[in-house]
Amino acid sequence: MLTAEEKHQIDHEISLVPAPKNACIEALKIVQQNHGWVSDESLKDVADYVGMSSAELDSVATFYNLIFRRPVGRHVILLCDSISCYVMGYEGIKEALHEKLNIQYGQTTADGRFTLLPNCCLGTCDCAPALMIDNDLYRNLTVEQLDEILNKYT
């Protein structure tokens, strides 16, 4: 069930576009903001709300890589794996994260704290390597900094 607040926010997005379904990505974002991901039930709720079928909405949802259709941890680590970070050695960071968190790409730590995902260029190539945790960007990374960074997130 969509909450009143979610509906309110979605209504606002709908007011900006010609047809409710045009606001479907915004609506998915709103739901994901609250739940961390978009479950099948949420997807159906959103679909009903904006007048789409589940299939039609899922078609949109699954196209984009930042709409999560599977549960994620409390914090999502997006590690930039694009070219500048490659040149600057993001692979070392990746190995370190695998080791520290004991998860591979696409996995969530056993305690549900982190999900690790690769991500394309974060647009901060002059400060490579970089990663993002939730809304926070970390640049000029070294393996040594990782513990301190990770410790900020519970």
Partner: peptide
């Protein structure tokens, strides 16, 4: 959208 790897000017 600036997602071209290596690009960070619009930011």
């Amino acid at each position: 959208d600036e997602m071209e790897p290596g690009t960070f000017k619009d930011r």
